[in-house]
Amino acid sequence: MANQVELQLIQPLFDIFQRERFVTLSTVDYESGGPNVNAISWVFAPDKKRIYVAVDNRSRIVKNILKNPSVVLNVTAFESNYSISGRASIKAEKMEDVPLKLALIEIFINEVRDVMFYGSKISVEPQYEKTYDVTAAEKLDKQVLDAMKRYNV
Rank of each mutant, 00 (worst) to 15 (best):
V71W: 04
V71L: 06
V71S: 04
V71G: 03
V72P: 00
V72S: 15
L73S: 01
L73M: 15
L73G: 01
L73R: 02
N74H: 10
N74D: 06
V75C: 05
V75K: 01
V75L: 04
T76C: 12
T76V: 13
T76N: 08
T76A: 14
A77L: 03
F78C: 07
F78L: 14
F78K: 08
E79M: 11
E79S: 10
S80Q: 12
N81D: 12
Y82E: 00
Y82N: 01
Y82S: 00
I84G: 00
I84N: 01
I84S: 02
S85C: 10
S85Q: 10
G86S: 02
G86A: 03
G86Q: 00
R87V: 08
R87L: 10
R87Q: 12
A88D: 07
A88C: 09
A88R: 01
A88F: 04
S89E: 14
I90D: 08
I90L: 12
I90Q: 03
E93P: 00
K94P: 03
M95Y: 04
M95H: 02
E96V: 08
E96Y: 04
E96I: 05
D97F: 06
V98L: 05
V98Q: 05
V98D: 00
V98W: 05
V98E: 06
V98A: 04
P99R: 09
L100K: 11
L100D: 13
K101D: 15
L102H: 10
A103G: 03
A103Y: 01
A103F: 04
L104P: 02
I105M: 09
E106C: 13
E106V: 04
I107Q: 02
E111I: 00
E111Y: 10
D114G: 00
D114A: 04
V115C: 05
V115T: 09
V115R: 04
V115Q: 08
V115M: 07
M116Y: 01
M116D: 08
F117K: 06
F117A: 03
F117N: 02
Y118L: 10
G119H: 12
G119R: 09
G119T: 10
S120T: 14
S120Q: 11
I122F: 09
I122A: 15
S123D: 10
S123R: 11
V124I: 09
V124E: 15
V124R: 13
P126A: 02
P126G: 09
Q127N: 14
Q127D: 09
Q127L: 09
Q127R: 13
Q127T: 07
Y128N: 07
Y128W: 14
Y128R: 07
E129S: 11
E129T: 06
K130W: 12
K130M: 13
T131A: 14
Y132R: 13
Y132H: 14
D133Y: 07
D133H: 08
D133A: 06
V134H: 08
V134R: 14
T135W: 05
T135E: 15
A136S: 12
A137N: 03
A137E: 06
A137M: 08
E138F: 07
K139F: 09
K139V: 10
L140D: 11
L140E: 03
L140N: 07
L140Q: 11
D141M: 02
